[in-house]
């Protein structure tokens, strides 16, 4: 994968590009792309992959003009437009799934294939999504990974999660990235999508880790109820970060949209 830049109306956008085949735009989750680069490499063996960073993620510029859901939705359409793509497969993980859903709902005739991987965007009072904004670094692995202990090792790159150097870097990154994500996820990751889901016309796959403790699989059914003809692919022995934990299974599912 190659890291590149394109300019949109409001901001310079960084994106990964690689592979060949049918174009697929992958929208990352609130944690960014760092952990999913391996998954993207695998994906690039089957698709021509474009994975833009939300402004503020990685080394990309923040964008004050992105304030609400409509801004994020239209911004991401701007990115697709600038990439010169027409009706790419739209895939999004977690927050990215929320953005992809909104994109498909506002422009239903421009998206014919949609993959939502453990997407945010809906809220059920009886199944509250845990508040990632109030979590301390060491608490995150429990919610993100099927194997929390291994997850902690991965997140801290092997160092102790109370190591000040790790914390410093983590918190600065968190402030930029989750600061941007908070505009559509804080304090409740829902911005009215449920009333727009019916507009989606795309063939839709809902891909979920069976052991997801952040956006529990009961949300798969809620999305399925809202999107006509949507199919659920439940992946065993996986938590929320299913593209990271089960890349081959997720890529296998996505291949059905070829």
């Amino acid at each position: 994968m190659e890291l590149k830049t394109i300019q949109t109306e409001h901001v310079a956008v960084r994106y990964y590009e690689g592979g060949a085949g049918r174009p697929l735009v992958f929208l990352h989750g609130a944690g960014g792309l760092d952990m999913d680069l391996g998954f993207l490499d695998g994906l690039a063996r089957k698709f021509h992959v474009y994975a833009p960073l939300v402004p503020g993620y990685g080394d990309s510029e923040e964008c004050g003009e992105l304030r609400d859901m409509l801004d994020f939705t239209l911004h991401t359409w701007d990115v697709v437009e600038r990439l010169g793509l027409k009706d790419p497969i739209l895939a999004g993980f977690s927050m990215g799934g929320m953005i992809a859903s909104e994109m498909a709902a506002v422009a239903p005739n421009d998206v014919s294939r949609l993959a939502l991987i453990a997407p945010a965007g809906l809220w059920m009072d009886e199944h509250p999504i845990p508040d990632i904004f109030a979590m301390l670094p060491y608490q995150l692995p429990d919610y993100l990974f099927y194997d929390a202990e291994a997850g902690a090792q991965i997140m801290s790159a092997g160092t102790d999660m109370s190591n000040p150097k790790f914390l410093q870097a983590f918190l600065v990154q968190n402030a930029r990235q989750l600061g941007a994500a908070g505009k559509i996820l804080f304090p409740i990751p829902e911005r009215g999508l449920s009333s727009r889901l019916y507009r989606i016309k795309a063939k839709t796959l809902l891909i979920w880790g069976e052991g997801d403790k952040l956006v529990p699989p009961v949300y798969a059914q809620a999305f399925q109820r809202g999107i006509a003809g949507a199919e659920v692919v439940m992946i065993p022995r996986a938590g929320h970060v299913v593209p990271f934990e089960k890349p081959n299974e997720v890529i296998g599912a996505l291949a059905r949209l070829q």
Partner: peptide
């Protein structure tokens, strides 16, 4: 005060965080 409530990401500027004390975020 639970440290997870002390500073929602995006509330403070990056500069302020870089100056801050971090021990409260450890277990």
């Amino acid at each position: 005060v639970y440290p997870g409530f002390a500073d929602a990401p995006g509330y403070r500027t990056i500069k302020t965080i870089q100056k801050g004390i971090l021990s409260q975020y450890a277990p």
